[in-house]
Design a protein around this nucleic acid. Structure first.
Lengths: 343, 343
DNA sequence: ATGAAAGCGCTAACAA
DNA sequence: TTGTTAGCGCTTTCAT
């Protein structure tokens, strides 16, 4: 005996009214008399009626569900960003369905398909590291489905975007390293297909140039944002004839990798070599020495991404994609504060 | 001009067949002739037909969606567990909808309602820290909806459960501390409503008793699993007349808090005071000194939780809840290896 | 082997 | 103000 949920029909039968009347009353349409409406509302509550969103989805052709694709749940940045997305979405009556691409292009396209088949109302996405083809997203635009990119975005897709000012963030932290007396600053870069990699690289270069420091190719190596790439590239740096006196890593993970290598070589941070990252993951404050880094408003990035999504839903065809650029702020910790300079 | 998706009806019209025939052929029912079936399959592919799961849900009364409620996305344990859940669910054709309770009872009940209203096929849950009333979950059983609890479980709910052997894990790590020469081992405990808190506490007590060490009430303080509670409780420990020579924290977060306090007091870890946690978060290997801890198979826990869910779906009414207890393993790092004892 | 008809729970034109 | 009818896309008896 399956105790199925109360439906609009049950209420209609009980009250000897038509389902239409019930439906209208429940949704507060104006053409139902006050007493009838009250009666229906009371009865619905008494019978513990809950509308079936599946049926509503079928007729309205929208699910109130947002598909979200992120590279990985285990990157703290995304954990926080999802929280922000969910909060804003939830307040607007939307559910989210989150999938992780595991940095794989194939998995990303696959989940794009799965989510669309599940009839989500649109997508909020942060690109996989290896994604360089964007056809699967362009197809969204063709169907005029909302799409918002955040953090890992690219130029090739016409969609609303949420990013931080990567250029400025990188510029500031490298300026800081220079002010601390560093003159040979190396950079662990990220995959060139990601806009943020290029912009952080440019901020780094700009800061060097403005201070009259040379931009040396040997001091720039491209990694894949992982701890492992941080350790590997740092080893390379240390093999150079003149090794760097500071390293600016594209992200905190790479910086942690660098930190491991430096420590294992017996180098003192920051006295022998200073270190800085990007994002300000919670761990950055805990490692030793605590990591100087560029803080991003991770939760807020998620909230804004969701908000842009909702705007797009409401704007309909006339909606014009926008790009929101948020500010970062420099967090100076022990890994960059050379004792020799402390006055 | 809305370019709506191809439907079964479109195929029927094109082929001059009934929708019934299309539906049957598409689902591989046996009563369709081979040539017709092939024709339908080919046409469907050509027209890029994708079944509408909303319509299927409506008629089948199941959504192939699992609701997941976790305390927080930003706890690394859950990030990894979700990955496991998603992988297994995904392979079985299920989507997941993940919500975070933020450790709040109210948010947890709220999302339970939201997910049920969204007609998920059941729930996979890890309890909020403050949850002590379980009516919202018992209601699931009444509707005979599948429910799986993991990690943060309780006795009061009749459901399948996935946990690790918390008693044994705690027992082993405390034994290890004793072997390292510690004699005054304190414990930062967790909320008593969580089974895992009680079991880790018991493992701790058992290890002490077996070694003939006293179980001292002053050395046991209950926190809330946070870094902050770790710092606070450690400060309390240090105020005691005889302060501990080791601290076993209920989780890594609490251990990190303890580490901060100890360092700020100038105490050397492990020589002045040894430290151990539970879970083996990625950070545990990075902090200094690296944290001795009890590793949990986080990803696998998620996989098994999803598997139990699927079993329950397939088992139907006759399904009997089971509890899977996974093994932990001790990870010994610098925070517990007293130099004085290294031979 | 194929199809007609009813129905899942709801909304929306259009009547009455 | 209330009700009738049709339909969203699909599955499922039950005929033919």
């Amino acid at each position: 005996m399956k105790s199925s949920q109360t439906t609009i029909k049950d209420i209609a039968r009980r009250l000897n009214l038509s389902v239409t009347t019930i439906s209208k009353a429940l949704r507060g349409m104006p053409d139902i008399s006050a007493p009838t409406r009250q009666l229906i509302l009371d009865t619905a509550r008494e019978m513990e009626y809950e509308p079936n969103p599946i049926a509503q989805s079928l007729v309205r052709n929208q699910t109130h569900t947002i598909g979200v694709i992120i590279p990985s749940f285990t990157i703290p940045f995304y954990a926080s960003a999802i929280s922000g997305i969910q909060q804003t979405a939830s307040e607007a009556g939307y559910n989210i369905m989150v999938c992780q691409s595991n940095e794989s292009y194939e998995t990303e396209t696959n989940y794009t398909r799965v989510l669309l088949n599940s009839r989500v109302d649109g997508l909020i996405v942060s690109l996989a590291r290896e994604t360089t083809n964007f056809d699967h997203f362009n197809r969204l635009a063709e169907r005029s489905l909302p799409l918002v990119l955040f953090n890992r975005v690219c130029d090739a897709v016409p969609a609303s975007k949420v990013v931080v000012d990567d250029f400025e963030g990188a510029y500031q932290v490298v300026r800081h390293l220079i002010e601390m007396g560093c003159r040979r600053i190396a950079h662990i870069a990220g995959p060139a297909n990601l806009l943020l990699s290029r912009q952080r690289l440019q901020g780094y270069q700009q800061a060097l140039q403005e201070s009259g420091l040379p931009v040396c190719e040997d001091f720039i190596r491209t990694g894949d944002l992982t701890i492992a790439s941080g350790t590997r590239i740092t080893e390379d740096f240390l093999k150079l004839d003149t090794s760097p006196d500071a390293i600016f890593a594209i992200c905190d993970s790479a910086a942690f990798g660098a930190m491991q290598t430096l420590k294992s070589r017996g180098l003192r941070i920051p006295d022998d070599i200073a270190l800085a990252g990007f994002t300000d993951e919670p761990v950055a404050a805990i490692v030793e020495p605590a990591l100087t880094t560029v803080a991003q408003p991770t939760f807020e990035i998620g909230q804004i991404a969701a908000q842009l999504f909702l705007d797009q839903v409401r704007g309909g065809e006339s909606y014009q994609p926008t790009t929101q650029v948020l500010k970062t702020h420099l967090v100076i910790r022990a890994s960059s504060q050379k004792k020799s300079r402390v006055s």
